[in-house]
Nucleic acid binder design. Structure first.
Lengths: 185, 185
DNA sequence: CTTGCTGCAAAAGTTTTGCACACGT
DNA sequence: ACGTGTGCAAAACTTTTGCAGCAAG
């Protein structure tokens, strides 16, 4: 549903990113945020003495294309389909940098695989996961930040982040189960 | 700090578990719960047409010995030290059964490795994790169950479980960081 | 030019699985 | 006896790393 596609962005960027958009505003309204993020990443990399490469920009684009939670391999697949050849290793390396730049953050959905979400400028979200279909719904969770800060204070901790995941059975899966029971007897 | 050690339990069990403690009370006070759990697991296995083996009992013992969150490999190590030789594969297979029996549950601490906790008869807990030292503190989280049920209702989900993890820097780690800064600058 | 980056393939880490043999019921 | 469980080693999977050549600043 985004009017400005990431592809458009990367084309613009490739035109001459080395002089464009050097001073990014620290934050911006939801959709507008897409342009600056590229600059923010570039600025972050420069500050660390790192380089803003074609691959890193393409990966950022792919990330911006994801509306919700995603996995490393998903990015790889989708980039391959879009004929953007990037290696697995580079994806993992770049995701790490994007986390340090606070552009994405990790979401704990299960313990076998890392899940990420675009988090820059967004408030932390909770996640409602269907255990049957793996559907993931995000919901706002401002109250949890308060709870977090209270608990950290109680234990003398310095808060860093928090994660709240609810597991349940989605309406669709409930219907499917019911149908199965009906047909079995 | 438990008066009744798991070792004592397993010895008792080995004396003749096949006739003892067949009818376990559905729940019990905190410490008393240790005995019945063995029976509950046995009953669960029988119901599934599975067998209550030496290895499974030893693993349950090892689990009961853990006060908080633990990992599969941790169990393996500690069982080896106690000279209880059980294979990695059996540990994983048994942990799966213990989860189905609702005796333990998975806790999401990070995405590389599964973490578990004894959950039978306990209310769900939240976890406060130090990102520097990996220290884990459990805290009660009854209010989250309400929040979970409310959100599930809103989305038509059937609640199954939920997890809340807070990441922060423990007082100890804060002191260490401060000391480091002092010596450097 | 200098330094960091990429891709590849191999390594590392956890969890799963196939198989021959052992054990609980 | 039957059917399941166990250990072992290999496989499967995600993530990391070493290295030779490549590209950004």
């Amino acid at each position: 549903m985004l009017a400005v596609g990431p592809t458009a962005l990367s084309v613009a960027v490739w035109g001459g990113y080395n002089t464009v958009m050097s001073k990014a505003p620290p934050a911006a309204a939801d959709d507008q945020m897409i342009m600056p993020l590229c600059a923010i990443f570039r600025r972050f990399l420069k500050r660390q003495g790192l380089k803003f490469t074609t691959e890193r920009a393409l990966i950022l684009d792919a990330v911006l294309d994801k509306p919700g939670v995603f996995e490393a391999d998903e990015l790889l697949q989708e980039m391959r389909e879009a004929d953007h050849r990037v290696s697995k290793a580079t994806i993992y390396r770049t995701l790490k940098h994007l986390m340090e730049a606070k552009i994405i953050s990790e979401v704990l959905i299960d313990s076998r695989q890392a899940h990420y979400r675009l988090s820059f400028g967004k408030e932390p979200k909770g996640h409602l996961v269907c255990v049957e279909t793996n559907q993931i719904i995000e919901f706002p969770a401002a109250e949890l930040t308060e709870l977090r800060d209270r608990l950290c204070k109680e234990h003398g901790f310095d808060p860093v982040s928090h994660r709240f995941v609810i597991y349940g059975i989605s309406p669709e899966a409930q219907k499917a189960e019911q149908a199965e029971r009906d047909s079995e007897g």
